[in-house]
Each structure stands twice: as C-alpha cells, then as structure tokens.
Computed example of a mutant assay.
Amino acid sequence: MSNTEIPTITEKLLTAKKAKGVTFTDLEQALGRDEVWIAALIYRQASASEDEASKLLQALGLSNDLVPELTASSVKGLGPIVPTDPLVYRFYEIMQVYGMPIKEVIHEKFGDGIMSAIDFTMNIEKEADPKGDRVVITMNGKFLPYKKW
C-alpha cells in the first residue's frame, strides 16, 4: 500500500465511523481491544477474529458481509516510498535521527536483538502542557535476542 492508496474497506469503515460519530475510544469499549489496534485493523494492518469483526461492523452499523475481509491476513507496511503525510513522516524522521541511538541503547540494556512488533502494544495519550499539549506514545515490545547456532 503506497502513501495514497487506502483500501476500499478502510474507506467504508472510516465513512461509517464518521457517520456514527464514534471515536476509536468508543470502539475500544465495543470491541474490548485497544484503540490503536482497532485503528490498525481498520487500516488493514491487523486481522480480526470473526467475533471482533462482527462487533466492529455492528458498532459501525455495517453488514457482516465485510467479516471475511477483516479476518483475512493483513498486508503490513506503508510501502517502499518515504511517507508524505506530515504526521506519519515525523515518525520516519524520528527514526532517521534517533534510530541508531535507540538501537544502541536497547543493545546496551538488553544485548544483541530486536524489539518485537508482533508481541507489542502501543498507547497514545494526550498530556496537557501550558506550552502546548503533548503527544505521549508508549511502545511496549518483547525483547527478542538474536539466536546463535
């Protein structure tokens, strides 16, 4: 999926979400899953169980005909192009500037390995600040040491 390609199902889900006037937090309550995971599901970066798909579609007032698309294996990633959306690009920029320092600090604390993006959670919070509200993102991934053989 390139920067401008949004799957048809994503467009349907986002249109229904807007029409219903629900937030990702509202959907979190309906599905019993985290709002970031639900957003990933809607953008087809995650796959749902049949129950999760049905709950989402019910919350959005959509037909269960879409269950097979939501339960299919997802295709992950933004594609080979540098992201052009300013907010998404900032994460790319953060990794360009701080990627190697983050890697070195993780290796120093844990050893040679990676942080899992599979055994992973993320929380996004809003923190009030007199100088301007702050975005607080907490990424929590299992450390996976490289295997020696």
Rank of each mutant, 00 (worst) to 15 (best):
D133M: 04
L70F: 06
E35F: 11
T71G: 05
S49I: 08
A53G: 07
M115W: 00
Y146N: 10
Y43M: 09
G113V: 08
T10D: 03
D112G: 00
T10F: 01
T23W: 08
S116Q: 08
K18S: 14
S73T: 09
M115P: 00
Y92E: 09
N64Y: 04
A59E: 02
L66E: 07
L70V: 05
T10A: 10
K142Y: 08
G21W: 11
T23V: 09
G99K: 10
A117G: 14
G113H: 08
P145W: 05
D51W: 00
D119A: 12
P80C: 01
Y146M: 07
Q58I: 05
V88Y: 06
E127C: 02
A19D: 15
W149N: 10
L87S: 12
S47D: 06
N140S: 12
P86T: 11
A19V: 09
A117W: 04
A19N: 14
S73Y: 00
M122R: 08
M122E: 14
T121S: 15
V82S: 02
E11C: 02
E93C: 01
E28I: 04
R90F: 10
T71Y: 05
A46V: 00
I38R: 02
A53W: 03
N64R: 11
V67M: 01
S47G: 06
I118Q: 08
A72K: 15
A19Q: 15
